[in-house]
Design a binder for these strands. Structure first.
Lengths: 181, 181
DNA sequence: AATTACATGTAAGCGGTTACATGATTGT
DNA sequence: ACAATCATGTAACCGCTTACATGTAATT
């Protein structure tokens, strides 16, 4: 039962925004958490319903177009707090890049180099996106959290660093292959 | 349809080992790929059955205790090759650490620091394990791939680098929090 | 009038985890 | 005899993706 991270992400967003509809949360997901976790509306709506049943959120009001406005309850706040303070991250994230890295020696070195090169191009594009986001955040005022740090900046920093590390790894791997052809 | 990475991992292992039973593959998973991808026997046995039906592997022989020995077919080899050469890695891996990082500003800085510290301890332990594995691999002769590189070394290198990066990030995040208390 | 954006849901199917279930062989 | 390991499978449940389905309000 203790993975349930969609729940946690939603509680986090509700804490940050105060109150929001399922639609708002879906959009907020796309804009922010999406770099770290994905979820579509078809997953979010039923989850909000379950969370309402579990008393973690409530329907505060119903607006135009059937819009339901949710807010977090004290129980929800407690659940979020408990997760943040007590959650032990489970085993290594399953990463397709890592799997590709694992299997790469099965290719001959010329092909392996081509794969790494393609991977690099892909990652460079992503890195540029993340860096642009970073710049934008440091120019415009953002959503503030309890400790005054902008919401999501730490995660963005982590993402950028990991991308750079992976790029460096790809470079070194290519260099190594080159020496063994 | 194009995620299917368990299939790919199994084909990769079968290529490396030549032939193996479902049991062997399950054990091999635990020992090697597990740092990158997890799968239990309850997933592997049915998948091998499906792969047999799809002509990617064949039951080469049946040994003692109902042991079925699988080997890869030319079609299987082709499938693996196509994936390695052609697979575009999809969006960012969903990582629990990253989600925690994202939500961390919702805690007050003392608590956030404690969470980061716990995360660090956890990651330091994992890093030590990975480094021990690295040392072991450089001492003992390992499984060799087509290009002469030891199978899985590239992935292990990537894992170690990412772990170090994440540790550095945690240190810097703690330092930042310290300055804001 | 037509299109876009808002807004909410359900259903099918897949991948993955945990637990259940069974039995043979080897080592102590 | 008993335990551990070998060896294979099934069932229930959950999380996630894709697609289906419906309707309202604002914009052009």
């Amino acid at each position: 039962m203790w993975v349930m991270s969609l729940r946690i992400a939603l509680l986090g967003l509700l804490t940050a925004y105060g109150s929001a509809s399922g639609y708002d949360l879906t959009k907020a997901f796309e804009r922010s958490v999406a770099h770290v976790w994905q979820a579509g509306h078809s997953q979010i709506y039923p989850e909000l319903a379950k969370m309402t049943a579990d008393g973690l959120v409530t329907v505060e009001a119903e607006g135009a177009r059937g819009r339901k406005i949710y807010s977090i309850t004290p129980e929800g706040r407690e659940e979020l707090r408990a997760w943040l303070l007590g959650h032990e991250p489970t085993g290594p994230a399953r990463s397709e890049i890592a799997l590709q890295a694992f299997l790469l020696p099965l290719l001959e070195s010329g092909e392996a180099r081509a794969v790494l090169q393609r991977l690099k191009t892909h990652m460079e594009r992503r890195l540029t996106e993340l860096e642009a986001l970073w710049e934008a955040r440091h120019a415009a005022p953002g959503l503030k959290g309890a400790s005054g740090v902008r919401f999501g900046n730490l995660a963005l920093d982590l993402g950028i660093r990991q991308m750079r590390t992976t790029l460096q790894w790809a470079d070194d791997a290519i260099a190594q292959l080159g020496g063994q052809t």
